[in-house]
Amino acid sequence: MNEKNNSLLIYTLIYFAFLYVPVLFLPLFSFNDADYMSFPLAGFTTEHYEEMWSKRNLHKALWASIKVGVVASVVSTVIALFAAKAFARYKFRGQKVSYGAIMMPFLIPEIILAVALLIIWINLGFKLGLVPVTIGHILFCTPFAMLILIARIEGFDFSLEEASRDLGESAWGTFYRVSFPLYLPGIVAALLLSFIISFDEFILAFFLTGSDATLPMYMWGQMRFVQKLPHVLALGAVILVFTTFIVLLAFWLRNLGQGKAKKDIGINL
């Protein structure tokens, strides 16, 4: 279709503004020299950013989030890689049911996952902390990682693997030398996006951390105090820039080496 539709274009641009402008207020007010986030802006300061260097609890929470994020993203990507391979490669009985079961944690309200994990964890006599949070995050990240990996593996030519087997390579050797290098961009994308999901996740952490706060928990704690808000804004702005960078990197990687036709959004909901 070669026609133009200007009213729809304008609407689309307004919608983009609706998506982006609210989030951009975070960095804007993080440089504002006032406790309240209101207009007119008071003056430029980087004081809220400097404050971050001296906050012990912030550093502790950041470290906790990194630990949880790394473990959760690695474990869920490995689990998701096997599952994605099964769905992309084989037709088998119970395919739909298995797919539904693995996608479940992504669909049902997170608070229910959190509450259920909390009950079992306490009743097993374990202490709340980063371990149950990590388990929850693995559960929550696996469906995401799987969607990304299925999109990558689906276009894959499986005769390459068969050729490798016919030429006498072992199953592991075939995976290591043939499949893995071709899946790699997808794997890295899945790792990065799972890490981001875990890094930003709040509800599971809220129920399961006990006293070991993750970064979102730390921010939650600070949000209650008006004087601390600018500090949260500065931290939030840094996190926004960081996550945007990682996500763009993941998007770029995911499309690497894929034909033009396959370049869709990658999440087939």
Binding site: L26, P216, W220, G236
Partner: peptide, 18 residues
């Protein structure tokens, strides 16, 4: 499409806070 979905990947807590 990337631009439309980008905000979704940023922290839910921060989007609500904004």
């Amino acid at each position: 499409l990337v631009l439309l979905t980008l905000p979704f990947w940023t922290s839910y807590l921060l989007r609500v806070f904004s």
